[in-house]
Design a protein around this nucleic acid. Structure first.
Length: 422
RNA sequence: GUGGGUGUAGCUCAGGUGGUUAGAGCACCAGAUUGUGGCUCUGGGGGCCGUGGGUUCGAGUCCCAUCAUCCACCCCA
């Protein structure tokens, strides 16, 4: 136990951290271009925020939260998602007083107590964006387009944007009744899970994978056809906006999202290379979230993308990630050369911006070269008694095995030129 | 929370029906080459066989429990 990360959590090791920096960097890049600024909120919040914000009957709240009492007897919860926290911050800091709309993004860990499986972890990482203070359909398209362009920018191609409208509290509750009425006689025929859904969240029945349930709901009216005038107009305007910018999508009238706060636009991005957990990102509009948690009546929309799943998909699609964080040069010593000499030369190179390191274990030249090779270092600075007596260093290019003697004075400039060329 | 698969070296895995000192490949370290990496050859270090209990003269192997892990369901990213 002592040497094991808790279930569903894992280390991101030095050899893997490059891909994380890559996907996080790309997220920051696209957000800058789209006019979103980063926001960082605490990793835990008052439990109540999630109860009210996400919804008490959702799976996330009812069975997946990491909740604990702190020493002051406050009930706190490790955030299971990002939207509620950002909404809280928006209210607490009165960001509605700033220029609207407010467009923000976040990247960070989320926590859900689930059984781990492929593409699912208890601590996982999301990149998400939120927009407050705009209900224009073009902002819906803005948010959806950002997510798709992010994926394509990473080299992911087997992805699909699915959209739907889940209406507003008024037309949704009407539709809910219509649906229950339609399925009334078939309840006993539905699967066990759908029997629970019938009372709790009948819209979810439409999303069931069970074949029999699919058959029973085949001819049932869809939410998208039962929207009120305002919601229908919004949905159609969103689709037009997407068409206008050439962003492809498929309307999935059975798409339902699991969080209570969604209204109107709901969308989900799926990858065909992921297996059971094919959802790589999802989001939607939440026009009543702010008021639900005690704020003014301000609309919002956002999405969250699962970065572990992004990485999984990139791996499956064989996207190559540019190598980074490599050393430019390695200072090797031979003979009686004082370790301090090597340190001084290494430091001189570093001060010039050349990523350099040296041996710390008193190894043979052979072992040092082997080490440098393993680390993928291209240029080796060899310091021996011979070199020092001439106030020179030998510079070896590991790529082609050539070496030349360079004066100490010109060493930094020489290496800087080589590194720049390489 | 439910169902199934799997736990042997750092990694990937062998170890018919129980039987002596548990193996291989890769990786790691050293030497061949007393100042030169990759390739080759030689040698070396490494194992509470997940953990606890049981059956047995004897358990890596059989039984039970437990933990971990993987996959799926629920749900979600």
């Amino acid at each position: 136990m002592l040497t094991k990360a808790p279930r569903g959590s894992r280390d991101i090791l030095p050899q893997d951290v490059g891909q994380w920096q890559f996907v996080e960097g790309k997220a920051a890049d696209i957000c800058r271009v789209f006019g979103y600024q980063e926001i960082r909120t605490p990793i835990f919040e008052h439990t109540e925020l999630f109860l009210r914000g996400v919804g008490e009957v959702t799976d996330i709240v009812s069975k997946e939260m990491y909740t604990f009492q702190d020493r002051g007897n406050r009930s706190l919860t490790l955030r299971p998602e990002g939207t509620a926290s950002v909404a809280r911050s928006y209210l607490e800091n009165k960001l509605y007083g700033e220029a609207q709309p407010l467009k923000v993004y976040y990247i960070g860990p989320m926590f859900r107590y689930d059984r781990p499986q492929a593409g699912r972890y208890r601590q996982f990482h999301q990149f998400g964006v939120e927009v407050f203070g705009a209900d224009d359909p073009t902002i819906d398209a803005d948010v959806m387009a950002l997510s798709m362009r992010y994926f394509r920018g990473l080299g992911l191609n087997d992805i699909t944007m699915q959209i739907n409208s889940v209406g507003c509290p008024v037309c949704r509750s009407e539709y809910r009744e219509v649906l229950q009425e339609q399925l009334k006689e078939d309840v006993s025929d539905l699967c066990k899970d759908c029997n629970d859904r019938y009372e709790k969240n009948p819209l979810r029945i439409l999303d069931c994978k069970n074949e029999r349930c699919r058959e029973l709901t085949a001819d049932v009216p869809m939410m998208a056809d039962s929207l009120c005038e305002e919601c229908a107009a919004h949905f159609s305007a969103v689709k037009q906006a997407m068409d206008k910018i050439g962003e492809k999508y498929v309307v999935n009238p059975r798409l339902v999202r699991g969080l209570d706060y969604y209204t109107k636009t709901a969308f989900e991005i799926t990858s065909s290379v992921l297996g059971a957990q094919s959802s790589i990102g999802g989001g939607g509009r939440y026009d009543y979230l702010l008021s639900t948690i005690g704020g003014p009546n301000i609309p919002g929309i956002g999405f969250a993308i699962g970065l572990e799943r992004v990485l999984l998909a990139m791996d499956a699609e064989k996207v190559s990630i540019p190598e980074a964080n490599k050393l430019d040069a390695f200072v090797a010593t031979v003979g009686k050369v004082c370790a301090n000499e090597a340190l001084a030369v290494t430091m001189m190179l570093r001060d010039a911006g050349i990523a350099a390191d040296k041996d710390y274990l008193g190894r043979s030249l052979k072992a040092q070269l082997k080490f440098a090779d393993k680390k993928g270092v291209r240029f080796i600075v060899i310091l021996g008694d011979e070199e020092l007596s001439l106030n020179k260093a030998t510079v070896r290019d590991m790529k082609n095995g050539t070496q030349q003697s360079v004066s100490m004075m010109g060493l930094t400039a020489h290496l800087a030129a080589l590194v720049k060329e390489a």
